[in-house]
Design a protein around this nucleic acid. Structure first.
Lengths: 347, 347
DNA sequence: CGATTTCACGAAAACGTTTTCGATATTGCT
DNA sequence: AGCAATATCGAAAACGTTTTCGTGAAATCG
């Protein structure tokens, strides 16, 4: 019933444990004959190496930790999928923890992972995180850590990101190119780097086009699990505050869809009265009416690449090689749909 | 740099390893004085028990495995969230694997988890799974396994589910109550139990109301990642085949939203021309226009309860107690929205 | 044929913990 | 004082593996 051990194989064949171990691992100093014998009886006894013992001996668990702000989120779950599929290919399993966008929780989760001795950590930062000691602690323990999407520039580790500023610039430029003159921005929370960068990209695009930046056109939303509602609320508020706005660049698709729903309800025509560009290319963006122009953010690929980088560092560390942090930037793309007008030059 | 061990604490205090271990675990046979001393130096040296060694000794990893058909899925990610939040409370970590709705992969994932010696397994079956040896194998190894949502009735283990048949019956009855006479059904794949049960509930509701069952009104969709498209396609097909249909009960919200999108595009009025009830109460159901009447399926709670049951069995097994499988049925609720008419009695 | 190399194997330590069992020292009691 | 009971500790085995090192036998070579 219980899985067999090396010792049991050794006893049935009347050889030593060491030889059995070596036979199973194709060491050169065991004859072809006994090697075959060992393999056969191992199969017979349904031998499975006891991973606990292997871990203890080799000091690695072949397991990595993954911390994300929120599991129930289309973008993040896509990233997760990319990570676990890639990890599995390399024989790694992944333990998922959630920070719930809380710095305190994030710290606790890191601690949990360290105490479980994962080989490395993949993390996307919580919105609330502004102190990074818990992260540098990981690095100090010689455990590789790579951040993705929501990163901290200041921490010296590998990161895989997109160029949020550039993407936001492109999005805003698209609004301008299609004739928008007065463009609002629904931005994300104040702390996270990508929400800052998207804001900056928006601002720069305005200035480059000689459109004055007006801070009263910038609305904040938490992007929590209420983002759809926030989108509706902001849209309603915007209609009250600024009747002259004819375009909005919105920090994330879910909020944008909330806004569209609100505009639809109030008879505001999209894109004629107001054009909208979202961010992420969430699945629903193509389903809503009108479909949402947005920035495509390659989640699956981001997960895949993040793991690949971690894996590289894992291997390097094993060979005692020095690893230098790498910043990997993934390409984004503007997806033009029905929530923005066609380009003037295209008509 | 490297974490301290019991031995190091013992040496600095010039006592034995055993005493240190016992002091840290509050054994009664160590004096208050040394206990305090040990705790202090442990903190000083930043001691962390080596989980590999603990695992080996105690034969448990405080880790469970979770296998789901698809991570990028609103319902499942909600379940995942319920599971990890509950597991964390009890000091368990969870390793997530994906079956991609493939039986072969599912088998492989189970094997992976067993070889990693997880303490128990939580699983929602792949659509393709019709043989269950890989699951009974787990039970035979005395590892607890509990299924949720997509289960196999035949396997003798705990399950947490909803009453799909009843919920589908309620949904269909709601269509009838609001005046629908000819009701179609977009069903899920043929194998999974819940897709079967939902179909049966639909059928029974018809018969109980003396509406003849017409198999040509039943459309199948895979519910893969293309379900939105499938919804559109089925809706279009339905319009071609049966102009007289005035209500549809749809296996899952995503497909229903696809259908709504298609109907909207073709000018079919919902709920006047065709009423629709979905299944799951996916977030977007309340966002789409018209908002979708649906069956609320408590994903978060399902995850929570599934883990709780597994935890119970884990504890029972530790005490060598016999555990008898338990079937836990969660309540669903009909959520009435704008895709169905108001009840005749309510007007 | 003696010396050296190669081959095949085993003994044993090590990883860091937990737990049983015994040993000493202290206390309480008659 | 003598004895039992209790408090406090340590030695050591065990969990199952990996890996180093040593050893004898066989093979090779001059």
């Amino acid at each position: 019933m219980k899985p067999a051990t090396l010792k049991q194989i050794a006893e049935t064949l009347d050889i030593s444990v060491s030889t059995v171990s070596k036979a199973l691992k194709d060491y050169s100093d065991v004859s072809e004959k006994t090697r075959k014998l060992v393999r056969e009886t191992a199969a017979q006894l349904n031998y499975r190496p006891n991973s606990f013992a292997v871990n203890l001996r080799t000091k690695e668990s072949k397991t990595i930790g993954l911390i994300i702000p929120e599991v129930v989120h289309h973008f993040f779950s896509t990233v997760i999928k990319g990570i676990i599929s890639q990890a599995e290919k390399k024989g790694y399993l992944v333990i998922i923890l959630q920070s719930n966008e809380s710095y305190e929780l994030e710290k606790k989760q890191i601690d949990l992972l360290l105490s479980k001795h994962v080989d490395g950590i993949l993390i996307s930062l919580a919105n609330g995180t502004s102190d990074f000691k818990h992260l540098t602690d990981v690095i100090d323990q010689d455990k590789p850590i790579v951040m993705f999407d929501k990163i901290a520039k200041i921490v010296n580790c590998s990161k895989v990101i997109i160029d949020d500023r550039k993407a936001a610039y492109t999005a805003t430029q698209h609004l301008i190119d299609t004739g928008c003159k007065r463009i609002a921005h629904f931005r994300g929370p104040l702390l996270p780097q990508n929400s800052i960068d998207r804001f900056l990209g928006y601002k720069k695009a305005l200035l480059d086009n000689n459109i004055p930046y007006d801070s009263s056109l910038v609305y904040i939303c938490d992007c929590s699990d209420m983002s759809f509602e926030e989108g509706k609320k902001n849209a309603a508020q915007l209609l009250k505050d600024h009747k002259d706005v004819d375009g909005i660049f919105i920090n994330t698709d879910m909020v944008a869809i909330g806004a569209i729903t609100e505009f639809n309800k109030r008879g505001v025509k999209i894109p004629e009265d107001i054009s909208i560009v979202g961010f992420s290319n969430w699945f629903m963006s193509s389903a809503i009416t009108p479909s949402l122009s947005t920035i495509d953010q390659p989640g699956y690929q981001m997960g895949k690449i993040a793991f690949k980088q971690l894996y590289k560092e894992l291997k390097a560390l094993k060979k005692e090689k020095e690893v230098r942090p790498k910043i990997i930037e993934l390409e984004t793309a503007l997806v033009k749909r029905d929530s923005t007008r066609t380009m003037v030059s295209e008509t």
